[in-house]
C-alpha cells in the first residue's frame, strides 16, 4: 500500500463523516484479512467483518458468473439485516471496501460515496498476491 496507513484511515473516517448514518468503514483483502479501518471498529470486530465481507463478495461473484452476463463483474454487494446495512464494493487490485450503516441510511448515497472514494484512491487500496512458493514466516 503506497498511501500511508494513517492517510488511509483518515480518508475512511472522512467517508463516514460525509455519509449520514454510516458506522464503520473497512478495507480488506480479497482473502478476508483486514487492511485498514475506522477507529470505531475494534481490531477483533474488524477481523470479523473482513472475513464476512470477503465471503459475501466471493459468493456474489459466483452469482454473477452463473446468472449474470458471464463476466463475473460485480457492482456492489448489499445486505440489509435487522439493525443495519452492509455495503461492499471492489477497491483496488485484490481489495474490497466495506461500510456498515444504520437501518435508515440511504443506499444510493452510500454506494455513490464509496465508489467516489474508490475512484479517487482505488489504486492505493490494494492487496497484491503472495509470491508463489512464499511460505509463512512462522
Amino acid at each position: 500500500m503506497r498511501s500511508s496507513d494513517q492517510e488511509l484511515s483518515w480518508l475512511l473516517e472522512n467517508l463516514l463523516q460525509r455519509t449520514p448514518q454510516t458506522r464503520y468503514a473497512l478495507v480488506l483483502s480479497r482473502d478476508g484479512l483486514r487492511l485498514s479501518h475506522t477507529a470505531g471498529l475494534s481490531v477483533d470486530r474488524a477481523d470479523q467483518l473482513a472475513a464476512i465481507a470477503s465471503g459475501i463478495q466471493s459468493l456474489s461473484y459466483g452469482a454473477s458468473v452463473e446468472f449474470g452476463d458471464g463476466t463475473g463483474g460485480l457492482r456492489q454487494s448489499m445486505t440489509e439485516f435487522h439493525g443495519g446495512l452492509l455495503f461492499i464494493v471492489e477497491a483496488g487490485e485484490g481489495a474490497h471496501l466495506a461500510v456498515v450503516a444504520g437501518e435508515d441510511a440511504d443506499p444510493g448515497v452510500i454506494g455513490h460515496n464509496m465508489n467516489e472514494l474508490v475512484e479517487q484512491i482505488g489504486e492505493y487500496l490494494t492487496a497484491p498476491p503472495r509470491e508463489p512458493q512464499q511460505s509463512s514466516r512462522l
Binding site: D31, A51, S54, L59, A127
Partner: peptide, 26 residues
C-alpha cells in the same frame, strides 16, 4: 469461492508444505 491469497495473509495463513497453493476458500 477461491480467492487469491494476498500478502496480507503472510504470517496468518501458513502454507508450509503446500507452497504451490495460491488461492484459499473464503
Amino acid at each position: 469461492t477461491e480467492e487469491t491469497m494476498t500478502r496480507a495473509g503472510i504470517g496468518v495463513d501458513d502454507a508450509q508444505g503446500v507452497e504451490a497453493k495460491s488461492t484459499t476458500t473464503v
